[in-house]
């Protein structure tokens, strides 16, 4: 459980984070979403006590992070890809961190195995790919078998297999009852991984909603129907809250009815269907809908720009 209460962080007179209040609950994956520079990394750094909030409080499992006698058992953090001395081997890096909390070599060896770094564990981190660095970061985060995990952009730099691996890992960790808090600037990634999303922009909370809600908003935008009797079907489908658009002589776009319902109506009236496709809106678009009210977030000219403003490695502070 992570609780933020009125957290503000100022660097000079610029606010990186403004009056942020949210709760990250155990047992689910909570996404932390926002464009690069929105304040995600700053917030995560504050949770683990690297940065001090200017005002407000952040607690993990009821206490400030630094007040836990064995922080690695409480919180595992992957903050920015490389918090690793590149001159050290992966195993020695983990052993050094483990030593602070009296965690043994067995655990280190097991984690190296778990994250799939056995072959390179005794090589210096300097030569690691971004993906290998991320895996080592994940192993560091899991060292103390923590109840809470905080991961900043964990899929950055991973190949598709690695992304799938992270997704499954996060879901299984949440299923074990842990608190999993993971940041991303990609709504599409969060839709696949998270149960809840906390969305921030320019350091302010924009939304704290179940992912299902965002997905529902995006899903069933309309259903594409191809039928030789477009005119006939169009009449049958008409109703309140239903919009039917004819896009071609044999093609309709239907909003406000599910594909199941359209298929059933067509069958009842013995109208042949050549195609019946629910068309999903973009998640990024749905995200924009959700955050439309947050005026601060919008800047002239970027109104309809998708959330994924930059897919580069975001080093935000």
């Amino acid at each position: 459980m992570i609780e933020a209460r009125g957290v503000t962080k100022k660097y000079g007179d610029k606010s990186a984070v403004s009056d942020l209040t949210f709760t990250v609950r155990p047992g689910i994956v909570t996404g932390f979403l926002g464009p690069n520079g929105a304040g995600k990394s700053t917030t995560m750094r504050m949770i683990v006590g690297l940065d001090a909030p200017t005002t407000g409080t952040l607690t993990v499992n009821g206490k400030h992070y630094a007040q836990h006698p064995a922080p690695l058992h409480e919180v595992g953090a992957l903050l920015e890809a490389r918090a690793i001395h590149t001159g050290r081997t992966a195993r020695n890096h983990l052993l050094a961190l483990a030593a602070t909390t009296g965690i043994g070599r067995d655990r280190v060896d097991a984690l190296i195995e778990l994250v799939g770094l056995s072959d390179v564990a005794d090589k210096r981190v300097r030569g690691f790919s971004l993906g290998m660095g991320q895996r080592l970061g994940i192993a560091s985060a899991l060292l103390g078998d923590p109840r809470t995990l905080i991961l900043d952009e964990p899929v950055n730099g991973l190949d598709p297999e690695g992304i799938l691996w992270i997704r499954n890992l996060l879901r299984s960790l949440a299923a074990e009852g842990r608190t999993v808090f993971v940041s991303s600037h990609l709504m599409s990634e969060m839709a696949l991984t998270a149960d809840q999303v906390i969305i921030i922009g320019k350091g302010r909370l924009l939304a704290d909603v179940p992912v299902a809600q965002v997905v529902a908003q995006a899903a069933g935008a309309y259903v594409k129907v191809r039928t030789p009797d477009a005119a006939g079907l169009r009449t049958l489908l008409a109703g309140p809250d239903v919009t039917v658009t004819t896009t071609a002589p044999d093609e309709l776009q239907v909003a406000g009815l599910t594909s199941d319902r359209i298929g059933t109506i067509a069958a009842e009236h013995r109208i042949a269907l050549f195609e019946l496709t629910p068309v999903h809106g973009s998640l990024e678009q749905a995200f924009m809908e959700l955050t439309r009210d947050a005026v601060e977030f919008r800047t002239p000219g970027t109104l309809e720009q998708p959330l994924a403003m930059s897919a580069s490695t975001g080093d935000e502070r």
């Binding site: 043994g104 655990r107 060896d109 097991a110 984690l111 778990l114 299984s172 842990r178």
Partner: peptide
Amino acid sequence: VQASAGPA
């Protein structure tokens, strides 16, 4: 995967 690999 299981995070609880080995004694921690």
